[in-house]
């Protein structure tokens, strides 16, 4: 035991650090529930901005929803948008600062319900921005109501007996939808509940910022995530349920790369 302790002392030294919290996250503790995917997505986006060295050229837009206070955690210039309007706000900023990096951070209530118009038209205009779309199939902040993305049969506080698609419509696949628009350059669906998915998401997030530098058009990154509080599950249960149900309906993977739709084989 003593030998093992000695070893830890040798390992836990500054020069041996292989992973630490990025300095682009503030010291404020995330306001998110235990196990919520927001924290991972926040961290990865900030890691990319740090690695690309673009903090002084990046402006983020926080939405209405659980991540309304994203600016408390991200140590970058940010503007908070009205519900669903982030792509319009991003358009205004980007048109004034065409050389800067601009991204929106939006949930599924924000982007896929009240903000569908702003989303589709920003995508259609090919605004040179990145949209991060966190889809957990529910309205988290207001207490777990049905979202447009809520799965068929899925329970929420406004579909207590499960979503009846005959009455309430079908879950909407925004990512496939915007991929059909000529203005989108890179469209992908990711997840962040396992280390492998986080690595893939980070690659996609990096591409979203690199595309802006090359003025390629809009990058749209959906992250299928959990809402264990809204789904009334433990974090681990929620991730398993998500993998079996959400990812079955919202399959991860690239949908459009370099402006070309990926053909399904």
């Amino acid at each position: 035991m003593e030998k093992e302790n000695l070893r830890l002392d040798e390992i836990i030294r500054e020069e041996n650090i292989v992973f630490h919290k990025t300095s682009l996250l503030t010291d404020k503790v995330f306001s998110y529930c235990p196990g919520c995917g927001h924290g991972v997505v926040h961290r990865v986006i900030m890691e990319i901005i740090e690695e690309l060295g673009i903090q002084s050229d990046t402006i983020g837009i926080s939405p209405v929803g659980c991540s309304v206070f994203a600016y408390d955690f991200m140590n970058i210039d940010m503007q908070q948008a009205a519900h669903g309007r982030a792509p319009a706000v991003a358009t205004g900023i980007k048109r004034c600062w065409p050389e800067k990096y601009v991204f929106t951070y939006q949930g599924d209530g924000d982007l896929a319900a009240i903000g569908t118009s702003e989303t589709i038209h920003a995508c259609n205009r090919g605004e040179n921005i990145a949209i991060f779309f966190i889809n957990n199939g529910i309205y988290g902040m207001t207490g777990g109501q049905m979202a447009p993305t809520t799965l068929s049969g899925m329970k929420s506080s406004t579909t207590p007996y499960g979503r009846d698609t005959m009455l309430m419509g079908n879950p909407i696949k925004m990512t496939e939808l915007v991929a059909t628009l000529p203005g989108t350059y890179f469209v992908t669906r990711q997840a962040v509940h396992t280390a492998l998915y986080v690595r893939k998401f980070k690659k996609a997030a990096r591409m979203a910022f690199e595309n802006q530098k090359l003025k390629k058009g809009l990058s749209f990154i959906e992250v299928v995530s959990n809402c264990n509080s809204g789904w009334k599950m433990s974090p681990l249960q929620a991730n398993r349920w998500m993998e079996e149900n959400m990812l079955a309906f919202y399959p991860p993977g690239d949908i459009k790369i370099n402006g070309e739709l990926i053909k399904k084989t």
């Binding site: 040798e10 390992i11 836990i12 030294r13 041996n16 650090i17 292989v18 992973f19 630490h20 919290k21 990025t22 996250l25 503790v29 995330f30 998110y32 235990p34 196990g35 919520c36 995917g37 927001h38 924290g39 991972v40 961290r43 962040v192 509940h193 396992t194 280390a195 986080v198 690595r199």
Partner: peptide
């Protein structure tokens, strides 16, 4: 670093030697 990658609160620092 798998644990640090999935940690939603960025509370894990990883060392390797």
């Amino acid at each position: 670093i798998n644990c640090a990658l999935v940690c939603p609160d960025a509370v894990i620092t990883v060392y390797r030697k």
